[in-house]
Design a protein around this nucleic acid. Structure first.
Lengths: 343, 343
DNA sequence: GTGAAAGCGCTAACAT
DNA sequence: ATGTTAGCGCTTTCAC
C-alpha cells in the first residue's frame, strides 16, 4: 500500500496538483466549486500533505524548537519548564505548529543541533537559561535563525526578548525582612553566570550593601543544603536566607531544622518560583511566583511574529508576585515584630 | 547569502554529490583518501545536511513524537511528564533524534496531528494517558506509524508496551492501613477510563471488598477537595483516604485540616507519584514513586527498536515503591497501633 | 571506487 | 481560474 499523495487527490478531484495545493493554501483564487471538489477528495482520501515535502519546497518546517543543554535529571525537578512549555503550546496548538525539544550533552552537540534546526528542522528557536555573554546569541545571529531570548539578557541583540524584572521581588523581600528586624540577611543564588541568577544576586547585594552573606549555589537541593550549613556555621550567622529557587530553600529549611532551629523563629526563609506545593509545606514557604506560562505564550508569539518578518521587540512580562507566607514569619497582613532575630 | 548545500561540499572536495552522501553515511565503500577530503570540506563549509531534504528522500524524519490531548494548564502541574520526557531525551540525545511535542485541543486535531506525523514529521510516537479501548490504538495501527504504549493497556495490540504494576502498591498501602487498624478506607481515583486510574481503583476495590468509599476524581486539586468533603460528610466517615496522585492528596489534606481534623490522627492520607516536595510537606506525605524517567528511557528504546524493524515486545518497568511517611502515621519501621481510628 | 541521473512530494513561477 | 513545469536538497539506483 503506497502512501496517498497530492497527485492522487488531484486525480480524484479531476484537477492538477497545483489546484489542489492552492485550494488548500488559498494562495490564489479558486472557484468555490472546484475548491469543494478538492476538499471532498482530500476528505475522502484522508490526505494530509507530507511535512517533509512541504518543508523542502517552502523552506518552512512549521516547527519551533527549544534546545536544552541541561542534564536530563535537572529537567525533571524544574517547576519553571513544564509551565513554560505549556504556555508555548497554548499558542502553537491552533497553528498546528510543532514544538521540537532537543537535549544536548555538550557545546559541540548544541552547535550541531542549532545548525540542523536552521537547515530545515525548525523555523525558529527559543533561548532559555541565558548566560551573561551567551555564545548562542552571536552564533544564532550568524545562522540567521529566528530567535527569541527568554530572560533579561544584558547586551543589545537583534533578537526579540521576553524580560522579567527579577530584581524587584528580591528588593521587596529584603525590605520586608528588614522591617521585621532582620539585620543579617543571606542569599543562596543560582549559578551567577545565568542572567536571572545574577540579576537576583545583584539586587540582593544592592539591597543589603554587602556580599559577605552571598553564596553561589546551582539550584540543586544538594547545594541548598551545603550552603545553608556553611551560612549557619558562621560565628555571626544570618537570621534570614533568601534562596533563588524553592528546591534549595526547602533543602535549606530541612537542614536548619535538623540543627534544632525553628522556622521562622530562628531563621526566616524565602524561595523563588513558587512550586505548586510550596503553599502547602509547613511552614508554608514564602516564594515568588512568576507565571512561566505567560512568558511561554509571549515568547511563542514573538517568535511567530519574527518568523513572519516582524521587527524584533522586547516584551516585559511582569507577573512576579511575592507571596509572604509562614516561613518568613510574615503572613499577608502581619504586623512586623521588631528584633526577633536570634543572636 | 544562499545556504550551503551538498553540491557546494562536492565541488569543494572535487567529487560528486553521491560521493559526499556516501562518505557520510558509509553506505558504500569509499577510499579513505576521498573520505578525508570530503570530511574536510564538510568541516570547512560547516555543512549540515538539510533535514527536510533528507527526510523527503529517505522517508525518515529522525524525530519521535508525543501528542498530548491535555489542557496545557494540566501539563504544568504534572510531576510525571517532565521526568518521563527527561528519560526519553536521555536516550534520544546521543542519536541526534528530535522529540516533537504536540498539544491538541480535540480529537479531530489529534487525528490530523497523527496523520501529519506519519506523513514525514516523525518516525514513531509514544502513547501516554492510555484509556481503556483507546481509539488511538487501532487508528495508529492503520496508519502503520510505529508506536509504543506507555501504561498497562488491557487489550492485545501489535505494539510494544511499557507496563507498570499499579495494583501492587495500592494493595500494599491498604494492607498497611488495615494492619494499623483502619476499617473504613476510601479511595479518590483519577478518571476511571484511564488505564492506570482504573488499575489502581480495581486493586483498591478488590482489597477493601466494596465500592462504597470509591470516588472518581480528575487528578485536579479541585476534585481532591470536593471529593474529600463528600467523604468526610458521610455519617460513617473513612479514617483513611488513598488518593491517585499527590495533588489531590494535598488538597484533601488541606480540606480535612480546615475541618479541624488532625492528620494522621483523625485521618490517614496517602498520595501517588511522589512529587519531589512530598517528602517535605508536613506531615510528610505517604506516596508511591514510580521512576517516570526509567519508563521514558524504556519507551524510547522500544520505539527506536521498533522503527528499526524489531518485533514488538512488552517491557515491565517496575519501579513502584511505596514511601510510608507521617501522613499515614506510619514511618518506615513503626509498629502498627491497633484501632487508632476515630469514630 | 566513483559519476550521472532519477526520484521523494510538495510549491510556485510561468503559461494559457 | 486552471494547467505545466521546474525546482527544493538530499539519497539511491544504475552505469562505468
Amino acid at each position: 500500500m503506497t502512501r496517498t499523495t497530492i497527485a492522487d487527490v488531484a486525480r480524484e478531484a479531476g484537477v492538477t496538483k497545483a489546484t489542489v495545493s492552492h485550494a488548500l493554501s488559498g494562495n490564489r483564487p479558486i472557484s468555490s466549486e472546484t475548491r469543494d471538489r478538492v476538499l471532498a477528495a482530500v476528505e475522502r482520501l484522508n490526505w494530509v500533505p507530507s511535512q517533509s515535502a512541504r518543508a523542502l519546497a517552502t523552506s518552512r518546517a512549521n516547527a519551533l524548537a527549544v534546545v536544552l543543554a541541561r542534564d536530563p535529571e535537572v529537567i525533571a525537578n524544574d517547576s519553571f519548564f513544564p509551565a513554560f512549555i505549556a504556555g508555548v503550546e497554548s499558542v502553537l496548538a491552533p497553528t498546528e505548529t510543532a514544538l521540537i525539544l532537543q537535549v544536548v550533552p555538550d557545546r559541540a552537540a548544541e552547535e550541531r543541533a542549532y545548525r540542523a534546526l536552521s537547515r530545515g528542522r525548525a523555523d525558529g528557536t527559543l533561548l532559555l537559561d541565558l548566560r551573561t555573554e551567551d555564545w548562542r546569541v552571536p552564533f544564532l545571529a550568524e545562522l540567521s535563525l529566528p530567535t527569541v531570548l527568554v530572560g533579561a539578557y544584558d547586551q543589545p541583540t537583534g533578537f526579540s526578548c521576553v524580560r522579567t524584572d527579577d530584581a524587584a521581588p528580591v528588593r521587596e523581600i529584603v525590605a520586608k525582612l528588614r522591617a521585621d528586624g532582620h539585620e543579617r540577611i543571606a542569599h543562596v543564588s543560582g549559578p551567577l553566570d545565568y542572567v536571572h541568577s545574577k540579576a537576583r544576586a545583584e539586587a540582593y547585594v544592592e539591597a543589603v550593601g554587602s556580599v559577605e552573606l552571598l553564596r553561589e549555589g546551582d539550584f540543586s537541593a544538594a547545594s541548598g543544603r551545603t550552603l545553608t550549613a556553611e551560612l549557619l556555621a558562621l560565628s555571626s550567622r544570618p537570621s534570614a536566607i533568601l534562596y533563588s529557587n524553592d528546591t534549595m530553600a526547602i533543602a535549606g529549611l530541612s537542614y536548619a531544622r535538623s540543627q534544632g532551629l525553628s522556622i521562622p523563629r530562628d531563621l526566616a526563609i524565602s524561595g523563588f518560583d513558587d512550586d505548586h506545593l510550596s503553599a502547602h509545606l509547613s511552614p508554608t514557604l514564602t516564594s515568588v511566583s512568576s507565571d512561566p506560562a505567560a512568558r511561554g505564550r509571549a515568547a511563542a508569539r514573538l517568535l511567530q511574529a519574527d518568523i513572519l518578518g516582524a521587527e524584533p521587540r522586547t516584551e516585559i512580562v511582569d507577573c512576579n508576585v511575592v507571596h509572604f507566607r509562614e516561613s518568613t514569619g510574615s503572613t499577608a497582613s502581619a504586623t512586623p515584630t521588631v528584633s526577633r532575630r536570634t543572636p
